[in-house]
Simulated scan of single mutants.
Amino acid sequence: MQTRHSMMDRLEETLIAALLGLMTMVTFANVVARYLFNSNILWALELTVFMFGWLVLLGASYAVKKNAHLGVDVVINLVSAPVRRMLALVSVSLCLIFSLLLLKGAWDYWSVFAELPPTTGRVFPTGLDWGARGQGWYEVQDIPMIAPLRFLEDMLNYGESYEKIPRAVPYVVLPLSMLLLTLRFAQAAVAIWQGHSDRLVASHEVEDDLETVRAQHGGQD
Rank of each mutant, 00 (worst) to 15 (best):
I16T: 08
A18M: 12
L11V: 12
F50N: 11
V83P: 08
V83D: 11
L101F: 07
L103S: 03
S99H: 02
T119D: 02
V64E: 04
E46T: 05
L57M: 15
S99D: 03
T120Y: 01
L58N: 00
G121I: 03
A63K: 11
V26E: 05
V75T: 10
T119K: 07
V83E: 14
M86R: 12
F98Q: 09
T27A: 14
T119H: 10
L96F: 08
F28H: 07
V79H: 07
W110A: 01
E115I: 06
L58S: 05
G59S: 03
L55K: 05
M86Y: 10
L15M: 10
L36K: 08
V64Q: 05
E46F: 07
K104M: 03
V75I: 08
A88W: 06
K66P: 04
V64R: 05
W43V: 01
T120L: 11
S39N: 14
L70Y: 14
L19Q: 01
L87N: 03
T27F: 15
P118M: 01
L103Q: 04
M23Q: 14
A33E: 14
V112N: 04
E12V: 13
L57W: 07
K65R: 15
P82I: 00
W110Q: 05
W107L: 00
Y109N: 02
Y109E: 00
P118C: 03
V32D: 10
L36D: 04
I97F: 10
F28K: 09
L78G: 08
I16K: 04
T14F: 14
F113L: 06
V31E: 13
E46R: 13
I41K: 03
A63E: 07
L96H: 04
A81R: 15
E46D: 00
S39M: 09
W110E: 02
R85K: 15
A17R: 12
A114W: 03
G59I: 03
A18C: 10
K104C: 02
A114V: 01
F28L: 14
A17E: 12
A68S: 11
M25F: 15
W107T: 00
L102Q: 13
L102D: 00
A88F: 08
V90K: 05
K104Y: 01
F37D: 13
T14I: 13
L57Q: 09
G121D: 00
G21Q: 05
L36Y: 14
A63V: 03
L15F: 11
V49H: 04
W110R: 02
S91M: 14
L58V: 02
L47N: 08
V92S: 01
G121R: 04
L78D: 13
G21N: 11
W43T: 01
T119P: 01
F50S: 10
V83L: 15
V90C: 11
L87T: 07
